[in-house]
Design a protein around this nucleic acid. Structure first.
Lengths: 177, 177
DNA sequence: ATAATATAGGATGCGCGGGTCTGATTTAGC
DNA sequence: GCTAAATCAGACCCGCGCATCCTATATTAT
């Protein structure tokens, strides 16, 4: 899964994408809307500005906005500089020799997963996210989540539920109906 | 991807699975065979013994061996207590509301990935790993890895290649030909 | 000038990866 | 049965990066 930092970055970018227009949004506004800790968010936004996905503007009325058209910014581009995404391409078992010819027992499965994961991040652009309808009828077969013998509640490591920030896909969605 | 700790655990379990028989293998032996730092490996093995996938034996001739038949130990069971696997089941964007009806833009893709990942870990047993042939002819179409605009070499964070430990799927494989 | 805002940097807490040392327990050898 | 060696078990310690907070400083609109 993604790092906390990456998740925050995505939340912010998604907020900006759905907010639309070319106006600048300040850290305070984005933090309030996404529930990301403001001070930390500031640092993340700076990084995103440095890597070129955000344009920043100092001073009164300044803030951040996507640096390029939404359709030209994929999620991979946002996440990649913030963490070591490429680890997904290495052998799960750490074998030196692990390719299509000489493979570890998990190679094939892992390659499928890795391809699908990286592919999703690369193929999804901010435009897709902005266009996304919040409530969509379940057309495809209700493919229930795998439930590997009740993983939760075994080691309550900081439960994230009920953090009380507004869901960005519920609020701030105006012109989709 | 997996934690370093989980990868170490898998390496050790795979080694024990392929070693076969009911004899005990000491930390020193496993560490030498898998290239995992011995002191740290000792800790991991203790945990695995506590969670019930390994049986430990103190004293001369002691060590560790799988606690149950290989076919009854899946990889998920090994990895789960060592890290927060369940994070894969949460919304990538941290939305409170994210299910099949009200979903975030990445929900479907993420669910596919999550299912495949957790499924692989749950469906693969140590027996499968032990039976696995090292070199297998590429029957399926040579499904090349996705290459998201040359991720490597952008930030050389501790290259893992060339660590010089013996590949466990190459050595210690005796009766598979 | 003032207020609002981004930018830069340091300080802190925590968990993971990794190491060291001391016990506790079992077996081998006498 | 005693002792010594082998081995697991557990405690403590450290470095590092992530996540977080705070305080300046630079920039800009009014």
């Amino acid at each position: 899964m993604l790092t906390q930092t990456s998740e925050y970055a995505l939340r912010a970018m998604v907020y900006l994408a759905r907010k639309g227009a070319g106006t600048f949004a300040g850290v305070k506004e984005i933090a309030a809307a996404t529930g990301v800790p403001m001070n930390y968010l500031a640092k993340i936004l700076q990084q995103l500005a440095r890597t070129g996905v955000l344009k920043s503007q100092k001073g009164f009325g300044g803030g951040f906005r996507p640096a390029r058209p939404l359709a030209e910014i994929c999620l991979y581009e946002i996440v990649d500089p913030l963490e070591n995404v490429s680890k997904f391409k290495e052998c799960v078992l750490g074998q030196r020799l692990c390719n299509d010819e000489v493979a570890c027992p998990l190679h094939d499965a892992w390659k499928r997963i890795s391809n699908e994961y990286l592919g999703s991040l690369r193929n999804t652009t901010l435009q897709d996210v902005a266009d996304f309808r919040v409530t969509h009828a379940p057309e495809e077969k209700p493919q229930t989540h795998a439930d590997p013998r009740s993983t939760e509640s075994r080691k309550g490591r900081k439960p994230k539920s009920g953090n009380g920030f507004p869901d960005i896909f519920r609020s701030n969605v105006r012109d989709l109906g």
